[in-house]
Design a protein around this nucleic acid. Structure first.
Length: 855
RNA sequence: GCCCGCUUGGCGGAAUUGGUAGACGCAAGGGACUUAAAAUCCCUUGUCCGAAAGGACGUCCGAGUUCGAGUCUCGGAGCGGGCACCA
């Protein structure tokens, strides 16, 4: 019994597609366009299973759409700037540029071995000046349009390494290398005005009907538009006021304190004469800048000497705290606390023994006490003078009216979304095209001087940004006055590159920027595919960029991604050597599963502990190398397994048994066509005039499969599509006999099988197509269409229930009269037994589905 | 801490709008072929009671809506993603 030789076949068809330029596209086509894009990879060194999964999904969509008559753009590129290259430079003394470019070459070869239908002519790499020069121009345009500005903002600072740390590099409040406690530090940095588009970014979410609801909801919550009010508290004995933002002005009569952020100007001013406060602020600043760190830390406050005057009551004074949970970045950097109706305020009040006065009672309750849970629901306002008796919404409105009348506040819409800080104090990124002149200030690099190229003659011996230490690079003449000046040594956040790369794929020639007509033709991306972990930042930044680029005349599209598919992670069981106290993680290939289900070390025979399945990661060593899988089983089998077991959106568990099963199927399908045990009609035989019942039944199955698989691909239900194709294979395998009608039907079934499986296993499908006698490529063959007249059934099986429990099934003609159906059901012996001589009270007949006899 | 998900046999999963729970695959057990093994093919397989017919139970847990709930509502548990300088 022969086996499918995937090595020969896969190489052959990959070469054939390349020779013919099968996947090269232009915008000059009579076919409608379809832009399929997978999130481009960071070139970390080698592809991992997550890449294989994502790019397999994208390739199925691209090939399916291509066969379905679309002019498909399906490109690939490299998100090539970023921190890991600098870490590699630091650890292995290899230049980030060399490391990155070598990784790209290696990964490109790996991707090519998967047989992905990319137009490789459009490949781009974000670390090359031909790419990033365009974003330097974009930045200058943003500056001109008022969409970029500079201000001070906080970073994590490692006092030992004397360098800025990414949040990822802060572990338990300490620098990852030095172990020294991290402090916050203010730096002057560039920001992009994403908040200018906050409303539009929020409202347009409703138009993104081919995005997962989950992602739209996450984005909406991230932007978080909230209607409320600003309230100005007069400060006793001072001229200035304390401005706070609140979404609950209706609860003002329940206020028991005010709190400001540790870095609020008022707090900083007070700390000059208050060493204890200065110490408290210092203590707060020892926390990293991440929201998770701030929100999970124990709530602490420092009571200042300030007192705030309640706007609605002459002699009501509130204490003012500096509190570690108040964010300077949100609202005004100050709050008023109403413990009865906000859980965090309640916790704070309990800790510092502040009053808790309920001012909203749940509907139907006259009196109301708060114990350890704040009441945040709707109700009637109490204890609040002129607000009493109103509901929450009316109370908000009335309170704002009163604030406005008193001149101590007004209604205000606030967003949680903050402007995007794009400055990074790092080497391996796109240089910010700005020159600092002592006379002229901040001067943009003139367009003719672009690109500002990243110098490659740098060293990584010291920590910090090597651009700062470069002997010549930053010293330039001021473009305005000609006097000596200095380049900005910050680079852009790498999200900058990934916010517009999809547009650049439209350019036929990657040596130049995309043209307006190319962008107009290809955008938006019709189907975008990537990990759920990018649900907020990358997607939101890209949506902002499209708007900003549209406003600057580059494009005319607000929403860059019309369809979005977020795929789950690839997971694997973890293994540990029990003799190791910490770590001891083992690679799957070091472990052997015995017949009793226990695991042992493949070499030593020592026992191994198997842990639960987790996302494949280098640190836990629960990784399987795609290259070795492709070498052992071929790309098609790897692709099949990636799609067959789990829905795309869910996590996928890698198992050896699973890939083995996929490999068996690959061979089974190949053998069925290449070494058929029953006759096949010759190539291009006309259909016989008559079919026997078996052939008719199989024809129905074939057409039903075409219909189902097409619907499954349309809805990205790849696992179900694979199951349907396997069912067809099973039906073909048990279809024997050799008359003309059967031989013809068998050929038809084989051809359809090859066509349906082609998006998933393109090499095998091409091989089968060729074996079946075709001289043209399956890749250039239109998607099959199901013949409607084979899809309708004459009878249907109905479930017969008694009191909702299944008792029987009956076969009835489709759309049979309800009265007849009911009679047939009641006549059943099984129904009579279940009724046990009781009289049916009513009978519910759902046509073609179920009959429920209720007694 | 906050936001968003997920949870169905021994395992991955299937189940159009609420209408026959377990498609398809994996694993396991039995059989055929073989000197033998591998490969391949056939059969069985949610749990429990029963010789069988048949019956009871069963979709993370607890309530609810409904003739009928894996699916809808409320409450809870466990696991995962994100939290603005990882990408």
């Amino acid at each position: 019994m022969d086996r499918y030789n995937f090595k020969i076949s896969e190489t052959k068809w990959q070469q054939e597609w390349e020779k013919r330029g099968s996947f090269e596209v232009t915008e000059n086509s009579m076919r409608p366009k379809f832009f399929v894009l997978e999130m481009f990879p960071y070139p970390s060194g080698r592809i991992h299973m997550g890449h294989v999964r994502c790019y397999t999904i994208g390739d199925v969509v691209a090939r399916y759409k291509r066969a379905s008559g679309f002019n498909v753009l399906h490109p690939m590129g490299w998100d090539a700037f970023g921190l890991p290259a600098e870490n590699a430079a630091f650890e292995n003394n290899v230049h980030p540029a060399k490391w990155t470019r070598e990784n790209i070459s290696a990964m490109r070869e790996q991707l090519k071995s998967m047989g992905l239908s990319y137009d490789w002519r459009r490949e781009l790499s974000t670390c090359e000046p031909e790419y990033y020069r365009h974003e330097q121009k974009m930045f200058l345009d943003f500056l001109e349009a008022g969409l970029a500005y500079k201000r001070e903002s906080w970073v994590n600072w490692d006092p030992v390494e004397q360098t800025v740390l990414a949040n990822e590099q802060v572990i338990d409040g300490c620098g990852w290398r030095s172990g020294a406690p991290v402090v916050r530090r203010l730096l002057s940095q560039w920001f992009l005005k994403i908040t200018e588009y906050a409303d539009d970014l929020l409202e347009s979410l409703s138009e993104l009907d081919r995005w997962p609801d989950q992602v739209r909801l996450m984005q909406a919550n991230w932007i978080n538009r909230s209607e409320g009010a600003t309230v100005n508290f007069a400060l006793s004995g001072r001229e200035d006021t304390l401005e706070v933002f609140t979404t609950r002005p209706d609860t003002l009569f329940g206020a028991s304190f005010c709190a400001i952020a540790p870095n609020h100007p008022l707090a900083l001013a007070l700390s000059e004469d208050d060493p204890a406060l200065a110490q408290f602020i210092d203590h707060c600043n020892r926390l990293g800048t991440s929201e998770a760190a701030i929100e999970t830390v124990e709530k602490e406050g420092y009571l200042t000497s300030l007192t705030a005057q309640h706007p609605f009551s002459e002699d009501w004074e509130l204490p003012v705290y500096v509190a570690n949970f108040v964010l300077m970045e949100y609202g005004t950097g100050g709050i008023f606390g109403c413990p009865a109706h906000d859980q965090r305020d309640l916790d704070f009040a309990r800790k510092y023994d502040l009053k808790v006065v309920p001012v909203v009672a749940p509907n139907g309750k006259e009196t109301f006490e708060i114990t350890d849970e704040a009441f945040v629901g709707d109700g009637k306002i109490i204890n609040s003078k002129f607000l009493n008796g109103l509901d929450v919404d009316a109370g908000k409105q009335r309170a704002i009216e009163e604030l406005e009348r008193l001149g101590s506040g007004s209604s205000k819409i606030s967003y949680r979304l903050r402007d995007w800080g794009v400055s990074r104090q790092r080497y391996w990124g796109c240089p910010v095209p700005i020159i600092h002149c002592s006379a002229c200030g901040t001067v943009p690099v003139p367009e003719v001087d672009l690109p500002v190229t990243l110098p490659e003659d740098v060293d990584f011996i010291q920590s910090g940004n090597p651009l700062d230490r470069h002997p010549t690079w930053k010293f330039v003449k001021c473009p305005k006055c000609g006097e000596p000046a200095e380049r900005e040594t910050d680079t852009f956040d790498t999200f900058f590159e990934s916010s517009w790369y999809f547009v650049q794929f439209g350019a036929q020639d990657q040596a130049r920027r995309f043209s307006r007509s190319e962008a107009d033709y290809w955008l938006p991306v019709d189907q975008y595919i990537g990990g759920i972990e990018h649900a907020i930042l990358h997607l939101l930044y890209s949506r902002f960029f499209s708007r900003a680029l549209t406003d600057c005349g580059y494009l005319n599209v607000k929403e860059p991604f019309a369809g979005l598919l977020t795929q789950g992670m690839v997971c694997h069981e973890t293994y540990r050597d029990p003799t190791e106290v910490t770590g001891g993680w083992m690679f799957p290939e070091e472990v052997l599963r015995q017949s009793d289900g226990e695991f042992i070390n493949r070499n030593s025979g020592a026992p191994v502990i198997a842990g639960r399945s987790e996302k494949m990661s280098k640190s836990k060593r629960n990784v399987v190398d795609p290259e070795s899988i492709i070498r052992t089983y071929g790309a098609d089998t790897a692709r099949l397994f990636m799609l067959s077991d789990s829905p795309a959106a869910r996590d996928l568990e890698w198992t050896d048994a699973g890939i083995e099963g996929a490999w068996r199927y690959t061979n089974r399908l190949w053998r069925m066509v290449a070494e058929p045990s029953d006759p096949i009609a010759p190539f291009r035989t006309a259909a016989p005039s008559k079919f026997d019942n078996h052939s008719k039944e199989l024809l129905r199955k074939i057409h039903r499969t075409i219909s189902d698989v097409s619907a499954d691909f349309d809805a990205f239900r790849f696992n179900r599509a694979v199951a349907r194709i396997r069912e067809l294979t099973n039906a073909l395998a048990s279809f024997t006999g050799g008359g003309d009608d059967r031989a013809w039907t068998r050929r038809f079934g084989f051809e359809i099988s090859a066509q349906l499986v082609a998006p998933v296993m393109p090499h095998l499908a091409e091989e089968l197509w060729s074996i079946l006698g075709h001289k043209t490529l399956l890749t250039d063959t239109p998607w099959p269409r199901a013949d409607e007249c084979f899809l309708s059934e004459e009878t249907v099986t109905l479930a017969i229930q008694v009191n909702g429990k299944l008792r029987d099934t009956i076969e009835l003609p489709v759309d049979v009269d309800s009265v007849i159906a009911e009679e047939r059901a009641l006549a059943l012996e099984s129904v009579a037994r279940a009724l046990d001589s009781a009289t049916p009270r009513k009978v519910i007949v759902v046509p073609n589905k179920v009959i429920n006899v209720v007694f």
